[in-house]
Amino acid sequence: MVSEEEISNVAKLMKIDLEDHSSHIKRVQKMLEYFDILDRANVESEEITVQETDLDKLRDDKYVPYDKDLLKFLKSYQEKYVKAPKLN
């Protein structure tokens, strides 16, 4: 079984503050345990399939200015800069 510590570490990497650890961790453990079923699918030799398109279907390189002042939609800014918490 995937350890509680490992799950807590992942939560940290995903920037999730777990206050009530235990309930989430147990549930995630159960889900991961269920995912073990994938080991029995016998699919090792399969290739990944993807959607494809042609180069000419893509957008032409053209500058079109955005018609709204997007900054006004944003939450917090100072002068014209977006404000984020300090880095260190």
Partner: peptide
């Protein structure tokens, strides 16, 4: 929970 699974 999905975020944790999605990180793992």
């Amino acid at each position: 929970r999905r975020m944790i699974l999605g990180g793992f």
